[in-house]
């Protein structure tokens, strides 16, 4: 069974992205109404609006939190061709308790792109404070704040020309030091003739450059989202891709003589699963924290959840859809039980 708690996000148009902070206690939302809002959950579980500001002069596509080690920091990207980094400031007059007056200031505006910035993601914290953006003209940019105590200084470290219309990117969150920094980028270019739509880049410590190490040729349909699974010390990486279906790929680094000599990792790409449950375009994929459940959202109006069992095979375990409300639900801290259709059983996870 599932239960649900509603938070009225007070945006004037559809929400494009929701991001929870590291603890899941704060929530940032962004929308076509050009606003970004930050919500806090109090000890009783009730959510309240903490800040709301007009962040861009176009639709805000994505919002993402930096690791709390760097403070309360958000990054956003927008149709207005910019990406921005925001920091929350606790005001001079802290009120009673821990909460003072708080507001968000724009620490930097990254204006290098000449087209809509489609995705923005902070890199793994082991790399310091770095930020990757990708834009509709197909350029990936890596920015770095060399002094993490001063967020107004960002330098454009790398500019990598990928294929046009990049739609999404994902950092490989591997803990392992033997894996160099890795990025996956997807393109939503509709022409199948241009070949593979997912590209894997790796940062080489020797040449200090980002190099494309793999093009996933099996995916030629437009890609709308992709996400690396949190790596629990596995030797291979797991990448979920939202395209015309849900794809889960295993990327295994191959340590042959060639790759050792060139210093460029070679990947063995295996499709671990392919789900056509949505029967339509898939827009979004998202892992839970431990990487045991994958949630995908598709044009069929469903969110579907997949889980891997002990013999490493993936299975669809639950689905969510929307229906007409009976009475309007008031905004409370309470969770309301969700009605189930098809079978009133608990989700069999295996």
């Amino acid at each position: 069974m599932f239960e649900v708690q509603e938070i009225n996000a007070e945006h004037k148009d559809l929400i494009h992205d929701v991001a929870y902070d590291f603890y899941g206690q704060r929530m940032a939302t962004c929308s076509s109404d050009q606003y970004v809002k930050v919500w806090d959950q109090n000890n009783d579980g009730k959510w309240s609006l903490s800040s709301s500001w007009k962040a861009h002069s176009g639709s805000v596509w994505k919002v993402t939190w930096a690791h709390p080690e760097f403070g309360q920091v958000l990054a956003t990207c927008s149709f207005d061709r910019t990406a921005a980094v925001w920091e929350e400031i606790v005001g001079e007059n802290p009120g009673p308790g821990e909460r003072g007056t708080r507001y968000w200031v724009r620490r930097t505006n990254l204006v290098d792109s000449r087209t809509s910035v489609t995705d923005v993601k902070f890199g793994p914290k082991t790399q310091g404070l770095i930020l990757a953006t990708c834009s509709a003209d197909g350029i990936i940019r890596i920015y770095e704040a060399p002094d993490v105590m001063n967020l107004s200084q960002w330098t454009l470290q790398h500019e990598v020309q990928c294929k046009p219309s990049c739609s999404c990117l994902s950092w490989n969150p591997s803990f392992s030091k033997i894996h160099p920094p890795m990025l996956a980028v997807g393109c939503d270019d509709t022409s199948a003739a241009t070949g593979g739509k997912v590209f894997i880049y790796e940062f080489s410590e020797n040449s200090r450059r980002w190099t494309k190490i793999e093009t996933i040729s099996s995916i030629t349909e437009p890609v709308h989202d992709l996400a690396f699974s949190p790596n629990l010390g596995r030797s291979y990486h797991v990448l979920a891709i939202a395209t015309k279906d849900v794809r889960i790929l295993n990327l295994t680094p191959v340590n042959d003589n060639n790759s050792i000599q060139s210093g460029i990792t070679k990947l063995d790409v295996q499709t671990a699963a392919q789900f056509e449950d949505h029967l339509s375009t898939v827009w979004r994929v998202c892992w839970n924290i431990t990487g045991t459940i994958l949630a995908s959202s598709g044009d069929d109006g469903y969110v579907r959840m997949f889980k891997m069992n002990y013999i490493n095979s993936w299975k669809s375990v639950a689905a969510l859809k929307a229906g007409l409300p009976t009475p309007p639900i008031s905004q409370t801290a309470r969770y309301i039980k969700l009605g189930a259709i098809s079978q009133p059983r608990e989700v069999p996870w295996h």
Binding site: V4, V317, K321, A322, V347
Partner: peptide, 9 residues
Amino acid sequence: PPTYVILND
């Protein structure tokens, strides 16, 4: 798999 419904128009 079981399907759950979120009531929201």
